[in-house]
Amino acid sequence: MGAVMVGERLVKATPENWMYPPAEGWTFDQVKDLELPAAWELVDGEIVVRGRTVWWHNHVRRRIERCLEDTMTETYCVASEQCVFVDDQNTPVPDIVVFDKQGLDLFETRAIPVTKAVLMIEVVSTGSRQDDRVRKPALYASAGVPYYWRVERGEGNLPEVHEYWLNPERAEYFPRPGRACHAGKLETDFPYPIAIDLAGLVEL
């Protein structure tokens, strides 16, 4: 009886067992229906609770998302705090993702396929510096996402955007040639023409 109960317990992650993954780790199918009081993501088969973010982080994220929506072309869509399916045991939740919506039923999609993602954006918080500067860009690059932005909190609370392009042969990001760090104003043509008044993002 005990063996059967253990087998059943590990079929799906629940609020009671999510912190005890099976030896091979959780899969997306096992965790996709899990509801916890805190936000979380699947990292190498383990459920990782995401830290709370401060007002600056959330405000800047919302403003950037709005700017991207205002300038995007018809084939793209912008989402924040949306699960992205990289593989069966890695479903990160970037602050913002820009993706190709063609062929997707957005009302039924549980996670955006990483093959559809064209730009990932992370807004760095005190508790996410290692993830946003190292782990997540490495994961996104290895999955072939063409562009990555890392948003840092600069002097006077002004956002600074570090723009990275993918080197597909090495599966690594490299700083955008010519102007890798945007302060004051961001202007880029990738993945589509975008201009953002960065100082205006924090105006109340």
Rank of each mutant, 00 (worst) to 15 (best):
N58Q: 15
W149A: 01
F99D: 03
G154R: 10
T91K: 00
L119Q: 06
F28K: 13
E35G: 00
D87V: 11
F99T: 06
A3P: 07
K32W: 09
H182C: 04
P177R: 00
Q102M: 10
V123G: 03
H162S: 07
E155Q: 13
G178P: 00
E169C: 09
N167A: 06
F174Y: 07
I194V: 15
N90H: 07
D105E: 13
T27A: 15
G184S: 09
R176W: 04
V31G: 10
H59P: 07
V161Q: 07
T27V: 15
A180G: 03
P175C: 01
L204K: 12
E8Y: 10
A13K: 06
N17T: 03
W55M: 12
D70Y: 07
Q102C: 09
A180C: 01
A138P: 05
V11L: 13
R52H: 14
A138Q: 13
D131V: 06
L198T: 01
E41S: 04
L104Y: 14
R61C: 11
R135E: 06
Q130K: 15
L201V: 03
A183G: 10
K185V: 10
N157E: 15
P22S: 13
L139T: 14
G51C: 06
V145D: 13
D70K: 12
V151Q: 06
L158T: 10
G7R: 12
E152W: 10
H182E: 03
A117M: 15
P92D: 01
N90I: 04
V60F: 08
D33Y: 13
V118E: 06
D100Y: 14
E65N: 11
V43D: 09
H59M: 12
R63M: 15
A38I: 02
L166V: 05
D87S: 12
G184F: 09
P94M: 03
F28V: 13
P113H: 13
V97Y: 03
G200C: 05
L201I: 04
R52I: 09
D29T: 15
V161S: 05
V124P: 03
E155N: 12
E152L: 14
V4F: 12
V93Y: 07
H59L: 12
G45Q: 11
V49F: 07
L68H: 08
R110I: 10
R62C: 12
E8I: 09
I64A: 09
A13H: 09
N17I: 07
M19I: 05
P168Q: 05
A143T: 10
I96F: 05
V151H: 04
Y192D: 00
V202N: 00
D33P: 03
K12Q: 10
A79H: 08
R50W: 02
M72T: 02
